Simulated scan of single mutants.
Amino acid sequence: MSKKIKNICIITDAYPTPDDPKNPFIDQLVVAFAEKNINCTVINPVSVTKKIIRKSVLRPKQWSKKTLNNKIQIYSPRYVTFSSKKFGFINTNTLNLKFFEYSCIKMLKKLNIKFDAIYGHFIFPSGISASTISKKFNIPAFFAYGENTNYTIDYLGKKRTRELLKDISGVVSVSTANKEILVEQNIVPEQKIKVFPNSINNKLFYKRDKDKMREKYGLPKDAFIVAFVGRFVEVKGANRLAKAIEKVGANKIKSVFIGFGNVRPNCDGILFEGKQPHDKIPELLSAADVFVLPTLAEGCCNSIIEAMACGLPIISSNRSFNDDILDETCSIRIDPTNIDEIAKAIEKVYEDDELRVRLSKGSLEKSKSLNIEERAENILGFIKGNLQ
């Protein structure tokens, strides 16, 4: 019989606060854990160096967040960081990791809570720290692998990362593609990895009445609107989408670009461009006709799942990171670098009402299994099954 879980320690290098809502997805998972009567303690070390150099705002050293039926405790011990540099035999990432680990260990000793499991968010520094703490405190450790590139492995290199993670109890991978990365590079044995695609809060992300949402945000009632949600960077492809819209014709296609960054979209017919609070995004998505994200790299894209839950047909990358969440029932898959392909897919959805309705229904159906409560339950079951 698997051991019951009462207390989980979550380690992350970025946990959202009311003033700094960065990385909301780890918070959604922790809230879901807490709502299943798990006592959740988050350790989120923050860099005092970044405060000095970048003039960033330090998070509170200690605060709590109330959920519907529980409360999450968050601690942010301070630590020193160095610029990520590798020269000769010196790798400053090793120092960054040591200071991060030390701040976590010091906090765990101070808290003196008997944790049943430690859960690190991403490999570096949280997952590796969870593995180190596991050996020191004899607590089973797990980490989530949701990165869209090899960057958290490259900090220390494959060999050193593999060595530091050898005692990890299990890995939560957000996609089959991510699992294959870990297996092919021999970072973690395959039997320790389980795939749990990202998910959404379906109490926030659901389909609203399109006409009401267009009226609320002052959007034209009869326009065909393409929605994009993501950072304005080359990887996400807002610039490529803008070029595709120009090809189709801004007289046909209007657009809403939700995000921020330096690689901004530039096309006629943009109705809105910029940041939006997270709770406003599902309303704007519900006002659109199709969601387009020509992304080059993902772990598992929350924005796509959020758009699906709002009933939008999806046009996105044909690369393997989308295979767990997209199929022909809800999406058109395209080469994210091919402007002509993106344009043809948009035109196809624009011209074919029957296709648009079918893909919309497929998105709604597919998103039903991608809710945060079910994901939290599955992850907790995986952790329970791997407790020693």
Rank of each mutant, 00 (worst) to 15 (best):
S173F: 00
D268S: 13
A14C: 12
L271R: 03
R59C: 11
V233E: 15
S134T: 05
F232L: 05
I346P: 00
N371W: 07
V226I: 11
E374H: 08
L204C: 06
K98N: 12
R54Q: 14
V48C: 07
E184K: 15
L164I: 08
W63F: 15
K98A: 13
L293F: 07
D352C: 01
E328H: 10
R333Q: 13
D222C: 05
K55E: 14
A144W: 06
N70K: 08
A287F: 00
A250Y: 13
L95K: 10
I346N: 02
E374Q: 12
I225K: 01
I346V: 15
N186F: 01
D154S: 09
S47L: 05
S126R: 01
R231G: 12
F87Q: 07
K212H: 10
N44D: 13
F224T: 08
A309G: 12
L326S: 07
F321A: 03
T149A: 06
P18L: 13
L380R: 13
D323A: 12
S84E: 10
G249C: 13
I281R: 00
S255E: 03
R208H: 15
D167C: 02
L296I: 00
L165W: 04
Q185K: 14
N378M: 09
T152D: 13
Q388F: 12
P265H: 09
A376Q: 05
F124S: 01
Y151L: 06
K85M: 15
K212V: 12
K110G: 01
F228D: 01
I90R: 10
V248Y: 00
G88F: 10
I72D: 06
K86A: 11
N378Q: 13
G259R: 06
K368A: 11
A223T: 11
K6R: 14
K280C: 07
S255D: 05
I53M: 14
N23S: 14
F321Q: 03
S56N: 14
F291E: 03
T337S: 12
I105C: 02
Y155R: 15
K71W: 04
A287L: 01
I38S: 04
T81N: 03
S331W: 01
E190T: 06
K51E: 11
R231Y: 11
D167A: 04
K384F: 00
I123H: 04
P140L: 08
F33W: 08
V42I: 15
K192R: 14
K109I: 10
T152C: 13
K344H: 10
G362E: 05
K212S: 15
A177N: 13
E190H: 04
V188R: 02
G274I: 01
R333A: 12
E184T: 09
N93K: 05
C330P: 03
I128Q: 03
F382C: 02
F382L: 06
K4Y: 06
H121L: 08
K158R: 11
G269F: 09
V172T: 01
A177Y: 14
G274E: 06
I139W: 00
V229S: 03
T161Y: 00
S360N: 04
K236V: 06
P220R: 07
P21Y: 13
E306H: 11
F260N: 11
I346T: 07
E215F: 02
F25Q: 08
K203C: 12
Q185V: 02
N386C: 04
S134D: 01
I53W: 14
A288E: 02
V42N: 09
K192Q: 11
I43E: 00
I105V: 11
F272L: 13
R208G: 07
S199N: 05
Y119R: 05
K344C: 07
S2H: 12
N112Q: 13
K110R: 11
G230Y: 06
